[in-house]
């Protein structure tokens, strides 16, 4: 196999070259970005159907990681059953959240609904603390921890799992929303709930489905990131904020936007930490986010016309 010139150049040198370093930053940035992108996709699914920004999205990720640790490490289920049962359980949490938290609100203004999601996120975090305590948990990497060397660039096998699952989620959702009746019905709710109701779509069921779906995607993100970063009960809020940033940067409601936004934020953080002062790495991503918003008030791939119709 013949590597590109810059990798060959790096191989000739003993210490790590600048180009290899930059490649390493990109690989790491894409991996972290893929996690953010999955969170952002979760935001979009619920946003499209309800206009709510579900700030409990990060808690789904946290639950995904911790439930997986329980299933795989504590109960001892093999990888695949543990994976599937974790998705199922976290989906259940999403459904309960919609039933008990969101639907019961009598006069739902967008602001009240967002506060309700904050309340739910606090409750989920509280329950997770009672169940798992405060210490971090580890999960064995899905296919071992022997790093793969590509030239001077080191790729942990788990990186590939994270990026791979992002691709699976993206392809699966594209198929779901474009090719299945259910997916099309959800899109109809997103475009115009009253019209959707007129043609006989059960909007409430679609809202429920959106919560279940985004909980499932959150769980996938959590399960794939835990072998890299460990997981503890307090991780959700930060992930929610990064994912929210990614969704906004890409343009709310747009799935390609979410992926683009997530990967961009991951890349900026990684390159910023590697090439500039690492203490400010979060600030770099946010400054670029602000700059983009000032030029394009509805994000990179967002549609300004659509935003104007939204209530909030």
């Amino acid at each position: 196999m013949r590597h590109p010139w810059f990798i060959r150049a790096a191989q000739r040198m003993n210490s790590i070259s600048f180009a290899t370093q930059v490649l390493q930053f990109i690989v790491t940035g894409l991996t972290v970005g893929a996690i953010y992108a999955m969170v952002a996709i979760g935001f979009n699914i619920i946003y499209n159907v309800t206009e709510i920004i579900n700030l409990a999205q990060g808690e789904f990720v946290m639950l995904g990681g911790l439930v997986m640790v329980f299933m795989h490490v504590s109960v001892g289920l093999p990888l695949v059953p543990a994976f599937l049962s974790t998705i199922f359980l976290v989906m259940l949490v999403g459904i309960v959240m919609d039933r008990l938290g969101i639907r019961t609100i009598r006069k739902p203004s967008v602001m009240t609904l967002i506060i309700a999601t904050v309340a739910v996120s606090i409750i989920i975090k509280g329950v997770a603390m009672l169940l798992w305590g405060k210490s971090p948990y580890d999960l064995p990497a899905f296919s071992g921890r022997t790093p793969i060397q590509l030239g001077g660039v080191v790729v942990q096998p788990q990186y590939l799992w994270v990026i791979g699952f992002l691709i699976v989620v993206a392809v699966g959702l594209t198929y779901f929303f474009n090719r299945t009746i259910l997916g099309k019905a959800m899109r109809a709710c997103a475009d115009n709930p009253s019209a959707a109701r007129l043609v006989g779509i059960d909007v409430e069921k679609m809202v429920l489905l959106s919560f279940a779906l985004s909980a499932a995607i959150g769980a996938v993100a959590g399960m794939t990131m835990t072998p890299i970063a460990l997981m503890d009960y307090d991780r959700g809020a930060m992930l929610a904020i990064k994912g929210f940033g990614a969704a906004i940067l890409g343009g709310l409601g747009s799935f390609p936007g979410a992926i683009l936004g997530g990967l961009l934020i991951g890349l900026i953080e990684s390159l910023g930490a590697g090439l500039l002062l690492s203490g400010y790495k979060d600030a770099y991503a946010l400054i670029i986010l602000l700059a983009v918003l000032f030029v394009r008030p509805s994000g990179i791939l967002g549609n300004l016309q659509v935003t104007k119709f939204k209530r909030f």
Binding site: L290, L293, F294, P297, K308
Partner: peptide, 27 residues
């Protein structure tokens, strides 16, 4: 520039501003 933004975009912009200022306090 921010107040031209609407809804969730404004929320994110103000959030980002707050976090950036806090990073400066810290660094």
């Amino acid at each position: 520039p921010s107040l031209r933004l609407r809804g969730h975009y404004l929320a994110m912009a103000t959030l980002a501003f707050g976090v950036i200022v806090n990073i400066f306090f810290r660094e």
